[in-house]
Design a protein around this nucleic acid. Structure first.
Length: 483
DNA sequence: TGCCATT
C-alpha cells in the first residue's frame, strides 16, 4: 500500500521488529486480535483519516494515546515539511478496523480543541479516500467577514455540501477563501457555472472566484513555483544565473497551465519545468543533459534571433533554452522525478498556504500562453525567421509597456518572453544609469497590432516569482497633450 | 512593487 514516506512512521510499535511495509494484501481481512498484535493488519476497507488542528509540539507518540481508545492503530503519521522537516500540524491515521475510524470520527471531529489551538480537532476521511478533488471547489474573493454558514448559504442550492471550510490564518481571521465539497462533480460544476464571477463581495478586490480546487499535481507545481520565486529573490545564485532563475519560473507557470486538464503524467513541458526546478533546488550549476549548450548569446537553440543583445551576466542564460525541447527527449515522466526528491504534496492540504494564488488563477485567462508556446514548439524544426530590426518603435497599437519585470531581465529575456506572440521588432528594458540596475519595466514592439493584443491577453497579470506582469499598450506620445 | 523609449 502506498503510504507517505516523509517523516517517521511509527506504525509498527506493536509488531516489534516486524517489517514496516504493509503486508496486508492477500491475507484475510478478518483479522484476529492476536494477529493484529504481532503483525499490524488492517481491514481491506479501512479508512485513512485526516487529523487536523494538532499542536505542533505533539508527535506520533503523544497522539497515539488519544486515538488508541477507539481501536488498534495501523498507522499514524504526522505530516512534516519535505524540506525543513517541520511539523505541519496535521496527520494521517489509519486504524486496523474500519469501525474504529468511524468511532473516532464521531467522537472527536470538531468535538474538542487541543491545547494551544484555536479551532477544534479535525478527524475525517482523507481526501485520498474519497477522490474528493473533482467535486471540491476553491472559493476565492470572499468577504473576510463571511463565515462557514454564509458560504454554505451561497452554495447550498446547487447540491448537497459535504464540507465547507473557510481558510483562516493563524490569528483565526478568514483569508477570504474557502473550500466547498459537494457530493457530486455535477453539483460542483453547477455552482461554478452560476457563481464564478457572478458578484463582488464588499471589500473584495475582484469578483467571486469559484473553481475546482487544485489537484495534488497543481499544488506541487505551485509549490515549486513559489520556491523558485523565493530563490529568485534571495538566492545569490540568481545573480550568477542572470535571468535563468526568473525565466524558469515563467516556464513553471506555463507548465502549470499546460498540465491542467491532463490526466496521468505531467506534460513534457511540466516535466521540463520541474527539471529546471530541480536544478535550482540542488544548485548543481548549469542546466544539464536535455539542454543544448550554446556558446555566445542567449539565443535558444532552434530559435534564430541573431541580434539579441546585451546579456549582462557572463553565464546568464547560456544553455537555457527558454522553451522545452521539440520532443520530450529523454525527459523522465513527472512521476519519475517525484521519486527523485520531489514528492507530490500530501493528499490533503492542511492550511492551503496559497489561497491567493488559487484566487488569482481563477481570475485570469491563462489559456493563450501555453497555446502560443505550443505553436512555437511545433515550429522548431523550421524556426520562423525572427529578425529584430533597428527601429525602436512599431506602428500605433503595436507597442507594449511592460511593468514588474524580474530584476534580472534584460532586453534579451524580454524579447524571448514575447517572441511566441509574433515578430518582436524591438525590446528594451530600462536601466537605472547610476546603478545599472533594471528599473523593472520596458517596451516591446511587434510588427502588427494582433500580436500585441495576443501578448496582452496572455501576459498581462502573468506571474513570475512573486510579481505579476503588467502588460499594456504603450501610451501614445501625445497622450495628455491636447495640442 | 509603482507607471510609458532615459542621461
Amino acid at each position: 500500500m502506498a503510504t507517505l514516506t516523509n517523516g517517521q512512521v511509527d506504525a509498527v510499535v506493536h509488531g516489534g521488529a516486524a517489517s514496516t511495509n504493509g503486508l496486508v494484501n492477500g491475507i484475510s481481512h478478518t483479522h484476529s486480535p492476536a494477529s493484529c498484535a504481532t503483525i499490524p493488519m488492517k481491514d481491506h476497507d479501512a479508512i485513512k483519516l485526516f487529523i487536523g488542528q494538532i499542536p505542533r509540539n505533539l508527535d506520533e507518540k503523544d497522539l497515539r494515546p488519544l486515538f488508541e481508545e477507539f481501536g488498534k492503530i495501523y498507522e499514524l503519521t504526522v505530516l512534516k515539511d519535505r524540506f525543513t522537516g517541520m511539523h505541519k500540524g496535521c496527520a494521517f491515521l489509519t486504524y486496523c478496523a474500519r469501525e474504529s475510524a468511524l468511532k473516532a470520527q464521531t467522537a472527536l471531529h470538531e468535538q474538542k480543541t487541543l491545547p494551544g489551538m484555536n479551532r477544534p480537532i479535525q478527524v475525517k476521511p482523507a481526501d485520498s479516500e474519497s477522490r474528493g478533488e473533482d467535486r471540491k471547489l476553491f472559493v476565492g474573493m470572499l468577504n473576510k467577514q463571511q463565515c462557514e454558514d454564509d458560504v454554505r448559504r451561497l452554495f447550498e442550492s446547487f447540491g448537497s455540501i459535504e464540507e465547507c471550510t473557510i481558510l483562516r490564518g493563524p490569528d483565526g481571521n478568514s483569508k477570504g477563501c474557502a473550500f466547498v465539497k459537494y457530493s457530486t462533480h455535477a453539483e460542483a460544476q453547477a455552482a461554478i457555472s452560476t457563481l464564478h464571477g457572478s458578484q463582488t463581495m464588499p471589500g473584495a478586490s475582484s469578483s467571486l472566484v469559484v473553481k475546482f480546487a487544485d489537484t495534488d499535481k497543481e499544488r506541487t507545481i505551485r509549490r515549486m513555483q513559489q520556491m523558485a520565486g523565493q530563490m529568485g529573490i534571495f538566492n545569490p545564485m540568481a545573480l550568477q544565473f542572470g535571468a535563468y532563475g526568473a525565466y524558469a519560473q515563467v516556464q513553471q507557470q506555463a507548465a502549470l497551465m499546460a498540465s491542467v486538464g491532463q490526466g496521468g503524467y505531467l506534460s513534457p513541458m511540466a516535466a521540463f519545468a520541474a527539471a529546471q526546478m530541480q536544478h535550482m533546488a540542488t544548485i548543481n550549476g548549469l542546466p544539464g543533459a536535455p539542454m543544448t549548450p550554446t556558446s555566445g548569446g542567449s539565443t535558444p537553440p532552434g530559435i534564430t534571433a541573431p541580434t539579441v543583445t546585451s546579456i549582462p551576466s557572463p553565464i546568464s542564460v547560456n544553455g537555457f533554452t527558454g522553451l522545452p525541447p521539440p520532443q520530450a527527449n529523454g525527459q523522465p515522466p513527472a512521476e519519475a522525478m517525484f521519486t527523485n526528491g520531489i514528492h507530490p504534496y500530501p493528499a490533503q492540504s492542511p492550511t492551503a498556504a496559497d489561497p491567493l494564488q488559487q484566487a488569482y488563477a481563477g481570475v485570469q485567462q491563462y489559456a493563450a500562453f501555453p497555446a502560443a508556446y505550443g505553436q512555437i514548439s511545433q515550429a522548431f524544426p523550421q524556426p520562423p525567421p525572427i529578425i529584430p530590426q533597428q527601429q525602436r518603435e512599431g506602428p500605433e497599437g503595436c507597442n507594449l509597456f511592460i511593468y514588474h519585470l524580474p530584476q534580472e531581465f534584460g532586453d534579451g529575456e524580454l524579447m524571448q518572453m514575447f517572441l511566441p506572440f509574433g515578430n518582436v521588432i524591438s525590446s528594451k528594458v530600462f536601466v537605472d544609469r547610476a546603478t545599472n540596475q533594471s528599473k523593472c519595466f520596458g517596451f516591446v514592439s511587434f510588427d502588427n497590432p494582433g500580436s500585441a493584443q495576443a501578448a496582452i491577453q496572455s501576459m498581462n497579470g502573468f506571474q513570475i516569482g512573486m510579481k505579476r506582469l503588467k502588460v499594456q499598450l504603450k501610451r501614445p506620445k501625445d497622450a495628455n497633450r491636447p495640442y
